[in-house]
Design a protein around this nucleic acid. Structure first.
Lengths: 237, 237, 237, 237
DNA sequence: CATGAATGAGGATTCATTCAT
DNA sequence: CATGAATGAATCCTCATTCAT
């Protein structure tokens, strides 16, 4: 009661009373458990008690920290997406070539999956696609990311680096869609997920999309990095 | 159309008495109603009775033709995806340049959306989510599509048209993901959906992805078609 | 429509138009199928379509011959029970010693089970015990049998063959209960059901109950037949 | 009482706070209500909400304590049957003549009915029918009771008290069947149920069955008690 | 903070029965 | 006679949520 419950906003993991990592932080425990359960069973198919069981707490406690089952998913989405937006904004603010900016974004997303595949699975499968429930709630947030990426592309077009005839919003969607589909491929085991696969994927998505967006002169200039070693049959993580 | 026949019900697609549109074909009626209802409310949020009401039939008739609510969605998915696979196979069998093959695929998908946005919305939004629960029946079907597209890319690489260092499966995913994300953009009203937008989108996705995949020499050859007129403000929504 | 449908009454298997065994007699087909299905799945757990499937007819046809699923069970019960009552009445009308009368009844019931275990299972499990539905409907019929048996016992008591201090109704119930429980034992595989087991069971139930009911003098007179060979471990039918 | 604990729910039979009848013990409340409702309407004809209403609790609470409607019936059966088995085991372990042992068992069953006719009605009427569907969990329990009674008979045969030519399992079934049928007679109002009727019934069933099972010499010894006064017209119903 | 007993609205599914062909 | 498409009432069960302890 003394500590304000941030029902949204980036997680402040510790710092209850500024005392440090004293309590096991049940709220975090529940969120992490929810990720695993949502990833395993899907949001709709799981019960609140499943989350509580996974977290090892009584299920009434979930309602102590979250107003509803929905809010748990909302929180997971917003936590991650805010980090994502922050990253995009930071990248955007720096004086880098588009290709590097886009690569930074692709890297961030792919590394996010590499670091916590369950979380990304939940966000992609349960939120991003959930047109009629969560999707609508978070469209504004998602749109912001597209707008930022779109801005980068517009700028690149103004600089003559990208072809001017491709509309920035469409390009931003295509760029993001390509990345997300790679994650989807990993999630559903359609693509191999070795360490090298992740690295190559970053390069690939940038090379493909930027390659297509760049003007001839730019492409000839050979700004693209060399492809990481193409390795097949690597161990999957 | 090679519609999947459910285990329950009778579903004699053939016209009764060979006369044509004699019988109302309730099964089709239910499927079409389901598309509208799923698109409007989402699969989970709608009740079976909503489908029946929309179709103007009795509650139980849905269960006369389909074993469950899931099977209705399943059927929609399989129906559509079979058409899609057929198209891809046909395209693949013809002696066309990759770019044209990919453009045919992109066109087909985008036209599918243009022709029946509700259906595509359902397929994209609900099925991915359902893939978790529905087991891997659908994954196998989807994988086949990717494999076919991957095959086109491999061939193009062998012919020196596409860069060899990009793995075909990843490229196929990126290609498909770009298209799907455009649809998602339309579905969520993040992109304008005028007639010209659809046409430009076809060109754009091919130009972007192929442009990125093609070897320098190929790109220089200028195989790409000129961009359709970039027109703004035709947004429908 | 020309042939009166006996919704109750002993089955008149053939004799539609007095022509003989011309048609396969679908009604009989359905009744026999119902016995098998009721025995296998239980009355409540089976669907009308299960009966129709077993009979190899469309399920609408069941309603051509019977007003409801209930009536099918009713008919089976009444068919059998009328035969049973007839037997008891006939036995009762003959100038035999009680012991032989009761043995005739026990034999009839046990032979009924031997001849068609499914039918007897259905009648015992689904009707006789079904206190609140069928039971009540048929109590009158069942009571008649008890009364007839009770009458035999009263007569035997008057003749000094049976002890007078045992009330006839109670004795009749006990007698019938012993037999029915043997059937139940067979039905649920608690007792062996070889041919000899059936024969011994007839003797046993009469020997036990009559032995207990008879007066000392009568018992000493040794009216009881010798026990059939006690055989264990016989093959089960 | 060694009540079977269901898999769901919590069921802390122990008194809360060691204070006694503090908590209403909803689980017991539900079971008792179920007995009344099952007896009145029959298992199949009643709804779960009828049980909840009768118990004065919310619908869902039934499912808090029991996994299904079936499990409620199951629990009632097992609770009762365990008490019954315990009684039989105890009787069996004592150095009494068979006749007294069997009389103790008959007394117990008949007193059970006298004490809670609804419960016995449910056990007799519904469980036999359910045995079909419930699988063989119950059959095993029932078999154990028969085996114990059969053991008593075998022992009596070895001691020369009972005729050796009657197989013990058949005799056990007949004995139990006679008792059960008396209960059935009461349940369906075919027999009078005054206090004296119950007492006479105990004597009758033992006298009849034991009388039939005993060897001549034993019967002559006159071990049987005198019949309780034969009184008519005390019928309760 | 934590617990889990209690609530009850909500929805999928079943299946007996009707009836047009 | 036969068929099986069509109907829709009936009911089980789930599970998010509340709240007393």
């Amino acid at each position: 009661m003394s500590a304000a419950r941030p029902s949204s906003g980036v997680a402040r993991e510790r710092s209850r009373h500024a005392s440090g990592a004293k309590a096991p932080d049940k709220r975090r425990l529940i969120l992490d458990a929810a990720v695993r359960v949502f990833a395993r069973q899907g949001f709709h198919a799981c019960r609140v008690s499943d989350i509580a069981d996974e977290a090892g707490v009584a299920y009434g406690l979930v309602y102590h920290y979250f107003a509803s089952k929905d809010e748990v998913l909302d929180t997971l989405f917003l936590e991650r997406w805010h980090v994502m937006l922050e990253l995009i904004r930071e990248v955007d603010s720096q004086p880098l070539p588009v290709r590097e900016k886009l690569e930074a974004i692709a890297s961030f997303i792919i590394d996010s999956y590499r670091h916590d595949p369950d979380l990304m699975k939940v966000i992609i499968v349960e939120v991003t696609r959930a047109a009629n429930s969560f999707g609508n709630t978070h469209i504004a947030t998602i749109r912001e990311a597209y707008d930022l990426i779109g801005g980068m592309i517009t700028k690149a077009q103004a600089e003559g680096v990208f072809k001017p005839e491709i509309e920035e919003r469409f390009a931003a969607m295509a760029f993001y869609g390509a990345i997300e589909q790679l994650l989807t491929g990993w999630i559903f085991d359609l693509l191999p997920q070795g360490e090298a696969d992740f690295e190559r994927a970053k390069w690939l998505v940038v090379e493909t999309v930027c390659g297509g967006l760049e003007t001839r002169s730019e492409a000839q200039a050979g700004v693209g990095r060399a492809a990481p070693q193409r390795g097949r049959g690597e161990a999957r993580a």
